[in-house]
């Protein structure tokens, strides 16, 4: 009787155990030394890999770039996504809501490679935008193979996640609260600032955390749209493994990246838990 939930969890825990084993192994590798010329590694345990990674300016720059870009991408996603989510939550037209929802979900399910590739053709040096500019007699702008291109691509990738998450929270804010505020003399803008925005904070925080997590671990977009010039953590790790097959050093880089990512997400998680109960006592269901 008491053992039943644990029995039901056996398959999941087995999958987690494989995951943990893979993890433990790669952490062990990060403390070993590469045998030159092979993929093999040997002991004894050493902190040399961590020391060398931490000492390299590339690692520091990468960490800063990754956090800075992830923050910027999250901010842009929130600024663009909020109005769309709000209109979607409050539109009186069922047809409009369904059409937009449909477009969002199809985009959401259509995958990263597809979308990264599409942006490459649109933003590329001879892409759609630059061809148009040239045709209009203007000089082309550099949109791909730099941070601009990566940012556009990742924001586009994150938007459906963000909008769909925030939408769920916005729909839980009763329309009657907005009506009450209008009835008491608030303008639409005041209703938004004083009622909707504060009540949506828990949903906003969780949608933003999700976006931030996605932006931090962005890999394909910087790889394709960054053209080797945008150093986000995942790419630097991948390129290191391709160029000097030093698995212990790469494992140490990945371990440090994981620590950085988990620390940032733990901070956001804390914020999320704090905000989740923000209005719980006030009778609003969020």
């Amino acid at each position: 009787m008491r053992a039943r939930p644990y029995l039901l969890l056996v398959p999941a825990l087995a999958a987690l155990a494989i995951f943990a084993a893979a993890f433990a192994l790669f952490v062990t590798v990060s403390f070993s030394t590469a045998t030159p010329g092979t993929v093999l590694t040997h002991g004894p345990a050493t902190l040399a890999n961590y020391r060398s990674v931490l000492a390299s300016p590339l690692a520091r720059d990468t960490a800063i770039t990754t956090l800075r870009l992830a923050g910027l991408m999250t901010l842009l996603t929130a600024l663009l996504g909020y109005p769309l989510a709000y209109v979607l939550a409050r539109s009186p037209s069922r047809l409009l809501r369904r059409t937009v929802l449909f477009g969002l979900v199809v985009t959401f399910l259509s995958g990263g490679v597809t979308r990264a590739y599409a942006w490459l053709i649109i933003l590329g040096n001879k892409g759609l935008i630059n061809q148009t500019l040239v045709a209009l007699g203007l000089s082309p702008v550099k949109l791909a193979y730099n941070e601009t291109g990566v940012t556009i691509g990742v924001v586009h990738f994150l938007l459906p996640f963000f909008v769909l998450t925030l939408l769920a929270a916005l729909k839980n804010i009763p329309l009657s609260l907005e009506e009450a505020a209008r009835n008491l003399g608030a303008s639409r803008w005041q209703v938004f600032i004083r009622v909707v925005l504060p009540l949506s904070i828990p949903g906003l925080v969780s949608a933003a955390s999700l976006s931030f997590a996605g932006a931090l671990s962005a890999f394909l977009f910087p790889e394709l749209l960054g053209g080797g010039r945008v150093h986000m953590a995942s790419n630097v790790i991948y390129e290191t493994i391709l160029t000097d097959f030093n698995l212990p050093r790469v494992a140490a880089m990945a371990a440090l990246f994981l620590v950085l990512a988990l620390a940032a997400l733990a901070l956001l998680g804390l914020l999320q838990r704090r905000s989740a109960h923000l209005w719980a006592g006030a009778g609003a269901k969020t």
Binding site: V87, A118, H156, L159, R188
Partner: peptide
């Protein structure tokens, strides 16, 4: 009609964002 919760500029902004989301899909 019941008064909408959002103004026309907000609706237009949302429309632009939606266009941005659909642009690559349509283009490809």
């Amino acid at each position: 009609n019941a008064p909408r919760s959002y103004s026309t500029p907000v609706a237009a902004l949302a429309g632009l964002v939606m266009a941005f989301i659909l642009l690559p899909v349509a283009f490809i």
